[in-house]
Every structure is written in C-alpha cells, then in structure tokens.
Amino acid sequence: MKIVVAIKQVPDRDAPVRIAADGKWIEERELQWAMNEPDAYALEEALQLKEKHGGEVIVLSAGPERVGSTIREALAKGADRAIHIVCDDLGAGAGGGLRNFDALGVARLLAEAIKPESPDLVLTGLQSEDLGLCQTGVILAELLGLPHATLILHVEKTDAGLKVKRELEEGWFQSIEMPLPAVLAMQSGGNKLRYATLMGIKRAKTKELRAVNAAELGVEAAPVATLEQISAPKKQKSTQMLGGSAKEAATALVEKLKTEARVL
C-alpha cells in the first residue's frame, strides 16, 4: 500500500504562546515546534499498515524551513521518504497566519503534491492543534476526488478496500467499509505512538527529502477566508459553597455534577 501522510508542524504544547502585536496571529519568535498530535497518530497508523501489508509511507508537509525538523522526525519514526512544500507564508507572516493560504489554499498545495504520487491512501490528522479548523483533510479529499471519512481511530485493510472505526459522540463508534483509494482524517488516541530512536534518526539522513514550492505545484494563493483577530481565552473561575449537612451537600453535589457539569 502506498500511503501519504500529511503532517503539520504546530507550536509545542509547552511553548509560551503570546499574541503578536497586530493581534492577528501569535508571536512566533522563541517558540518551540512539534508535530501536530493527530498527525502523529495518522503517521503511526500508516506505519502500522505498512508493517502489516508492505508498501511505502510518504510524509508530506507544507511550511517554512523549520518544518524540516518535524519531517525528519517522521522519517526517523519510519516513513520512507518525504515531500516538503516550502512555503514561507504559511503560519505567521506579518499580516496573519492565513493571509496567503487558508485551509482551501493549503489543501490545494497538498493535493497538487499528492496527485503525481497516486497513493492508495491519504492520511492526515483530523485537526491541527493551533488553528483547529478540521477542514484541510476533507477539502483535500474533495480536491483529489476521493471518498473520505473523519474521526477515524482504527483502519483495517480488507479485500474490497477498508474497514474503519469512526468515533461518534458520547462513546459511540461507527464502523464503515469504504473503497480505496481514500482520504482519512485520523483521531488521536487510536494507537500507541512509537518513540523516536537513534537508529531511526541516523537512517533518516539517507532518506529522500524532496522540496517543492507553490509555484512549481502551480498553486496560487487565493484565500476565501481571512483571520481577523485572535484572543486569549478569558479565565473564569467560580466557586459555589454547598451548605447543609454532609448528606444534603452530597446530594446537591451529585445533582450539580449531573445537570450542570454533566459528568455523571
């Protein structure tokens, strides 16, 4: 099976996030970067499918030079080769993150890079940890003219195509059979991620890493959505004291956990 995994580099969880002066994106200096977590699960699924059925895993990522480190990480974990769409306008830029490429623009870039590969399967995370649009994967499927499914936890190859496990709300799952080729947007947590190894990193040095740019792919930036402003969430903390006897307080607490917090 030839599998393409589209991966995004996002600010690291522990990185200090500050809003840039123009209020349209975050300050990118002094940030540490990491692989978008749902994409890491997409990569893991691809690697496991390859280990079971053979084939090739190609990593695809769009972004500036710094994205190289995440691509190398993916190669180190076992991907066979990589395509880097070098694209400086992605992410911050002076006028905001999506100034030149919105989700549609990014999906176009990815689609153009994927087409000549004609893979059996395209995997990507269901959303990015920074923008969280959940759009890129499904637009990509549309552009490639392939069937897609989202929120996938598990993929099984069958004679006819694929059988996938899809996460629904409130602990429900859906099992879908679908043909190949296809695009799947992967949910986090379906697999156990593997750790990076020294041997993987050393071997990654010899793997093919091809760089292309938007012009070579014939994609021009034509955003249909623009990001106007971002803001930090307002911190809200409220404390309620439950009075009465221990029994009354416990009853009230259970009631609130059921009706307000809805965790019971």
Binding site: R13, L193, R194, Y195, A196
Partner: peptide
Amino acid sequence: SKLFLALERG
C-alpha cells in the same frame, strides 16, 4: 514509550 514521548515533546 510514555516516558520517552513525554520528554520528546515536553
């Protein structure tokens, strides 16, 4: 793996 992944990212 959990320890390694925690230190890879965190």
